[in-house]
Every structure is written in C-alpha cells, then in structure tokens.
Amino acid sequence: MIGSRRQILIRKILVWIALILGACFAGLPVLWMVSSSFKSNLEIFAYPPALIDESFSFQAYEAVLSDPGQLRFFFNSYLVAILVTICTVITSILAGYSLSRYDFRFKKVLSLIIIGVQSVPPITLMIPYFGLIVWLGIYNSYAALVLTYMVFTLSYAIIMMTGYFNTLPRDLDEAVMIDGGGSFVTLWRILVPISLPGIVAVGVYTFMLAWNEFLFALTLTRTNDMRTVPIGIHLLMGQHSFEWNQMLALSVLGSLPVLILFLLFQRYFIAGMSAGSVKG
C-alpha cells in the first residue's frame, strides 16, 4: 500500500515535470513576446537579453490604445469575425444536416468538392479572386471579407458539423418526422439544441481563422476604415523601420479576444471537436 502510494507520488511528480516542460515549450516564446512589448525598441535587441529591463513601460500599449485608427482595426476585426462566425455556423449546420441525414445521388462528388476546396493554395488564387470581388462590386467592403472567410472556413466547419450530427441517433429526428414535423423543424428544434458543443467548436474555429487572416484582408481592402488587426500590425512595419514594441503590443492585445473565447468555451469546444474528427 505504501509502495503504491509512493508510486503514485512519483508518477504525479513526473506528470508535473512533463506538464511544466510542455508549458515552457508552448508558453515561453509567448512570454518573451509579452515582455518585449514592454521594452523600448532599443532594448528588444539588447544582448545579453533580459526578460525585464529598465526600459519597462506601457508606452507601446498607450500608443496603440490611444490611436483611433488602431481601435478601428479592432472594431473591424470583431465585426467581421462575428459575422463570419454566424454565417459559417448557419451554412454548415444546413450542409452538415444534408450530408449526415440524406442519401442522394451526388453526395460523394459534392463532399469531395467541399473538402477539395481546401486544397487550393490561397496565394495563387489571389489575382483572379481579386478580379472577381471587384466584378461583384464588393471590393473594400465587409461583405468581401465575410464571404472570403466563409469560403476558407466552410470546408472544415462542414466536416465538423456532419461528424457531430452523425453521432446523434437518427431515431431522434425520425420520431419528430413521424409526429408531422418537417425536416427543417426537426433540424431546428431537435438537432440544433443538442448539437451545441459541435456548433461552439465550429464557431470558435471560424472566429480564430477570421480574426487572424492577413493576406486576403489586405488585398480585398484599400482603406484603413475597412481593415483588420493583422493589417494594423503590418502597418507598423515601415519601409525603413519597425515599431517592434507596438507591433508586439498589438499582437498581444489582438490575441486576447481569442484566448478569452477559448477560456469561456473550452469545454464545449473540445467536446464539439471530438465528433468533428472522429467521423467526418
């Protein structure tokens, strides 16, 4: 008995050691980013480097937060990411329902296309895509960004939603169908409420992607009032100089919403991811 208690203790210590080593791997670079955002631009490149030095100040954060232009980037990022999340969630629920509950002629082909869309390297599509957006008349608008990010996120969102619906027994919806409810009623009243984890997983995934995307956000907008945080970060990289500390401060601030989102929804998120990846 004592031996086993000791064994548990040893195992516990080992687990903690591994846990902390892992946390160092994941967290130390981020810690360095945070500490650098409090340094002066001179000290960021000092050697030997120090985690905190005498140049410590909130100057970079003040500069970022007191700039209405930067705040506008945050507003845009929120607006775009939230809109994309809502649209992707709804669209993927509809598509997932179709792929999970129906058998139809072109199902195989269509699901291959939906997944295959992800295989196109985004950079090469840029010029024709840009032309298309201009042609559609939505250049430099929120609509352009929202639609683009929907395209980016839909594939995986549909995979996840289909997988989640697949884990739910069919008897559920068949019972409602027999009671005279239409398929849409079944989906809306029965499947959606119990699929909350799957929906949250899709939502968080979509939000993160939309929040962080850079290339298209830049190409499809031309004025700062439509631009998002990642572009704000790039605007601090000048032709001749980098505002390192402001760039890092902006990244730290920009990551907070995503972290908070994860913090709040992690349980749901993880539960939802499970179904998504077990069966697509």
Binding site: G22, A23, A26, G27, P29, V30, M33, M208, N212, E213, F214, V229, P230, I233, H234, M247, L248, S251, G254, S255, V258, L259, F262
Partner: peptide
C-alpha cells in the same frame, strides 16, 4: 497555456 501558439497570426 498549451493552445497559446494557436492564437497568433502567422506573420507575428
């Protein structure tokens, strides 16, 4: 802590 690397945009 472990998902931290995920929340930053690639250029950063």
């Amino acid at each position: 802590i472990y998902i931290l690397p995920w929340v930053f945009t690639a250029s950063i």
